[in-house]
Write a protein that binds this DNA or RNA. Structure first.
Lengths: 342, 342
DNA sequence: ATGAAAGCGCTAACAG
DNA sequence: CTGTTAGCGCTTTCAT
């Protein structure tokens, strides 16, 4: 900065004003200083500007690497944050690095707000975080008044999925659930409600699953516990659906001919042409944008009416849902499952 | 800091020494100050310590979120960096945020070294970066003397895969390649060399693929261009292999009974029980550790003998490779492929 | 072992 | 519009 100022024959303050695009410099000084800075390869020291500025203009984000839905969200967050004049600090949650640790890092950098994509275990801890800085959690539910929530209406999403299947003629529809967690229980409830609404309570069946391909694959095995295979399955998320499909297909059970499968998230994986998963879309980029806007609103003291923004999900119909085959598969036909490798 | 010092009745300097575990404080002062700091909920301001310290102790990492191999690497980098007393700054490469942009962020934070997981396009730009700070690229090859490289021996890895298949009795083995990029061309060469070594040059066939499931799925279609289906395929990476398998299985081509498939990376996805992909392992945690150690070595001025560390890959045999079926599939049998949905 | 003082590179009030 | 003056919260000599 000093060097640039010297070379341009002006004060450091002017250079500072110019490089960060603040008001108070003539257009000519501006271009001249900018040129000089550029040719000197000057880049402001983030640490110093962060420290000196009264505001850090930093939004912290916790995420799980390798989670396709988080990839979409982060992309959207970067874009939206930039539009609002904020920078993004990423903090990964890994098997050996918990959410708590991840958030501490964000705090240490004095992020002004936090957006949590990775699920948070403890509600009480969430209160502590929410009390320290504006916090918005994305994709998960929480009644915690200390944090904002951006999520899709999980119950409605499941209803869309079930309605679609019932509309196609399905009656025997199972749900592979997501285990613990607020969104998992919401989706489970949405499934139950939808089945009830269609008068299919007796057909209602929840199989314990989880958030990964592995969980979906394991759940496939439990599908054969009853005497008859259902004609359709709605799963907790896309990854779970993909795991399920993999096993089914390897077991010579055709999707969607023998069994329709619906995922949840409309993540990158669902969109792959050869997967073509029918799924419930949560519109990641919109959620990302809303999360950033909410964080900014809290920071600028804008009026916020509802703590929680619940988006209406919509169904993306692709290739894994179809009319049920007439007559459901008998258990005996599934005997191939066990022995089959891929 | 000031407050803690006041409360403990000591100077700020002493507190500083204690909280960051530096030498020069009695054990009693240490515990006492630490207790006070803890109960005051004191957390040092990262921005200030970064600025004041002559060293930032920061290692920057560029990565692609949703890339399973990167997830493994980042986990290892966090762990290794911590052991070496460094912190990690993540910078994501997304469709709308190039590597260049990602690295600039790292530079702005005055990271002392950079570890690039995301592939870098321009060699000349790489030289610029390498000249500015110790840079180590992981998983990709580069003859650029400005950067260090940690990678596995791609040619050897492909040889392992081909050897394994030949050992099982396969002769008609295709390679679904990774397109452009140094590691892709290395693996392609490794495949060709191995085929030649086994006297199978005339069976040698490379199908253009790519790094994603989608690419693998597309490549599956091209598999049927010849009159006969090969008995085995070695792919550019695990994601490509999974995409290929998906299509094959949906086309009633059993893996590995009709066709053996071998992936590359041993990423999380390959390890999923229902996938059980035979694959070439690059040992992510070891690569991560070596990358950090190399960065630290450069920073501490340790002697570095070889710019490039090439690890010996090893084969992880799971369920997608087996003996070839006697007599290969004829083209006619593949007619189901086109029409089949999932 | 502890305290005092001088910055790290920048921003943000102000006065000119 | 420009330059001057203080800090931001911490680290790091250097005395004590």
């Amino acid at each position: 900065l000093e060097d640039v100022a010297a070379r341009a024959g002006v004060s450091r303050a002017l250079v500072s004003i110019v490089v960060r695009g603040a008001a108070g410099a003539s257009a000519e000084s501006r271009t001249r200083i900018l040129t000089i800075a550029a040719e000197m390869g000057y880049r402001p020291d983030k640490r110093a500007s962060l420290l000196a500025g009264h505001r850090s203009q930093l939004i912290g984000v916790t995420l799980v690497i390798s989670h396709p839905f988080h990839a979409d969200l982060v992309e959207g967050i970067y874009a939206s944050a930039e539009r609002h004049g904020y920078e993004v600090v990423l903090s990964a949650v890994t098997p050996s690095r918990g959410v708590q640790r991840a958030v501490e890092t964000l705090l240490d950098y004095r992020c002004e707000a936090a957006i949590l994509l990775a699920p948070v275990v403890s509600e009480s801890w969430l209160s502590t975080v929410g009390a320290r800085l504006p916090t918005v959690i994305v994709g998960y539910q929480s009644k915690n008044p200390a944090v904002d929530v951006i999520r899709a209406a999980d119950r409605d999403g499941m209803r869309l999925a079930v309605d679609h299947l019932v509309g196609l003629g399905h009656r025997s529809i199972v749900h592979i659930d997501g285990g613990r967690g607020s969104s998992a229980s919401d989706r489970r409830q949405g499934y139950r409600q939808a089945m009830r609404a269609h008068g299919l309570v007796d057909q209602s069946r929840v199989i314990s699953g989880g958030p990964s391909e592995e969980a979906g694959a394991k759940a496939a095995g439990r599908l054969f516990d009853g005497s008859e295979l259902p004609t359709a399955a709605v799963t907790y998320n896309d990854r779970c659906a993909v795991g399920l499909c993999d096993v089914l297909i390897r077991s010579a059970i055709s999707v969607p001919r023998d069994l329709s499968v619906i995922g949840y998230d409309d993540s990158q994986i669902a969109r792959l042409p050869h997967i073509g998963l029918t799924t419930v879309s949560q519109d990641a980029s919109r959620m990302a944008n809303l999360a950033v806007e909410r964080a900014v609103a809290r920071l600028t003291g804008s009026e916020v009416t509802e703590r929680e923004i619940v988006l209406a999900p919509h169904l993306v119909i692709r290739g894994t849902s179809a009319f049920p085959r007439t007559g459901s598969l008998l258990r005996t036909q599934s005997s191939k499952v066990r022995g089959s490798a891929f």
